[in-house]
Each structure stands twice: as structure tokens, then as C-alpha cells.
Computed example of a mutant assay.
Amino acid sequence: MTDHERAEHAARLRGLLCLSCPDAPAGALELTADAITRCAVRVPAGAVPEAADLGRPRQPYSADRLNLCCADLRSANLTGADLSHADAYRADLSGADLTGAELSHANLTGADLSHATFSGADLTDANLSHATLRHAKMTGAILRDAALTDTALRDALLCGADLTGADLTGADLTYADLTGADLTRADLTDADLTDAVVTRADLTSAVLTGAALHDAANQCVVE
């Protein structure tokens, strides 16, 4: 097993351990994943299976940053999960694969989700305020009534995403691709959509007060 394969295997294991042991300290999860990986001869062929959910709040371990960077969380049940951490201890899910995951009502406030994949994921009523979603892949994601206040969505791929009623107040959507997205009744007050692609996006009844739409590809539906 190469060092790169070992690192990928450890990342997948962190996702599985976090789902299986939601109350364990993040450091213990990381050490356990590393210990298992050191003894592995080859990378398992299958994806990390879905395990228990993270519906219960995690224990408030101090200085306990949750490291789920590049974790395999495809189709995981994270309904109501609390993956938010304050300041330096916020959750790191950068590069994580959450394709088809159930994240409705999840708390991802301030989480690092840059380069993460949420294609087809359900984030209905999730709180993503102040989260970092730069370069995130969210094609077909359901974000109905989600809180995305002051969220960094620069270069995010949101093609066909359902953002009905979402709160995008102050969100950074520069260079984001919103082709075919549903932004009906979305609040885009003071959002930055400079150079964003909004071709065929539905902005019916959307609030655009103070929104920056400079140079945006604005072939969209607005009523």
C-alpha cells in the first residue's frame, strides 16, 4: 500500500468511526484510524458502509477538532447532526464525499466544506451559516429553507440545486454555477453574485436587495 493509498484509507475510516462512535473524542477517532491503517496490507475495494447516525449532539470535548477531511460519507444518515465547532475547533469536512447523504436539519455552522461533494444530498433546513463551501460540488442538492448566511460559496457547483426559500444573505457566490437552480423565494440580500452563472435559474419572488450581479450570466426567471 502506498502512502497516498494509506492516507485515503485513513480518511475513509475516520468517516466510519465518526458515524459509529459519535460521542468519541475527535483525537481518539483519528488515532484509531491511523492505527488500523498502519496494519492494513491493501485498501478495501468497497466504500465505507453507512453506520449509526450523528443525530445526538457530540460531547463538548475541549480543543477537539473533528477531522473528517476527505472522509467517505456517501449516503450517510446525518439527520440533525451537530458538526459545528466554534473558532479553531470547527469541523473539517474539506474534500469529504457526502454524495446522497441525508443532512436535513444538520448544524454545519462554520464548518470547512471546501471541495466537498454533496451531489444529490438532502440539506433541507440545514444550518450552513458562515461555512466554507468554496469549490464544493452540490449538483442536484436539496437546500430548501437552508441557512446560508455569510456562507463562502465561491466557485461552488450548484447546477440544478433546490434552494427554495434558502437564506443566502451576504453569501459569496462569485463564480458559482447556478445553472438551472431553483431560487424561488430565496433571500439574496447583499449576496455577491459577481460572474456567477445563473442561466435558467428560477429567481421567482427572490429577494435581491443589494445583491451584486455584475457580469453575471443572467438568463434567469425573475418575477
Rank of each mutant, 00 (worst) to 15 (best):
T174M: 11
G180K: 12
A196E: 01
G180V: 07
A191G: 08
L163Q: 04
D192P: 01
L208G: 04
T199S: 10
R200P: 00
T189M: 03
G160D: 14
T184E: 13
L178S: 11
D167L: 13
S205A: 12
T194M: 04
A161C: 13
T174L: 01
V207G: 02
D195G: 01
D177K: 09
D202E: 10
G180P: 11
A186F: 03
T184W: 04
A206S: 12
A171F: 04
D167I: 11
A161R: 11
T194P: 01
A181T: 13
T204L: 06
L188H: 03
V197L: 08
D192G: 03
D190W: 02
G170I: 10
A206M: 09
G160V: 09
R185Y: 15
D187Y: 02
L178W: 10
D202G: 00
R200D: 15
A201M: 06
L188A: 08
D177Q: 03
R200Y: 13
D182R: 14
D192T: 11
D172P: 00
A176L: 06
D190V: 00
T164I: 07
D190S: 15
D190R: 12
T189I: 02
R200H: 14
T164R: 15
L173E: 00
A181G: 12
A171L: 07
T189W: 00
D167P: 01
D190M: 01
V207S: 14
G170M: 07
L173R: 00
D182L: 12
L193W: 01
T204W: 02
R200C: 06
G160P: 09
A191V: 04
L193S: 05
G160A: 14
D195Q: 06
T199F: 12
T189S: 14
D177T: 13
V197C: 12
T164V: 08
A196F: 03
T204F: 04
D192H: 05
T199Q: 11
A201P: 10
L203T: 02
G170S: 07
D177C: 08
V198E: 00
G180T: 06
A201D: 07
T194R: 14
T174A: 14
A206L: 05
A176I: 02
V207K: 13
A186Y: 01
L188G: 04
A171I: 06
T204C: 04
T184A: 09
D162A: 15
T164M: 09
G165I: 12
S205D: 15
A176K: 01
L163E: 02
L203I: 07
L178H: 12
L208H: 01
L188M: 09
V207Q: 08
A186P: 08
A206R: 01
A196W: 03
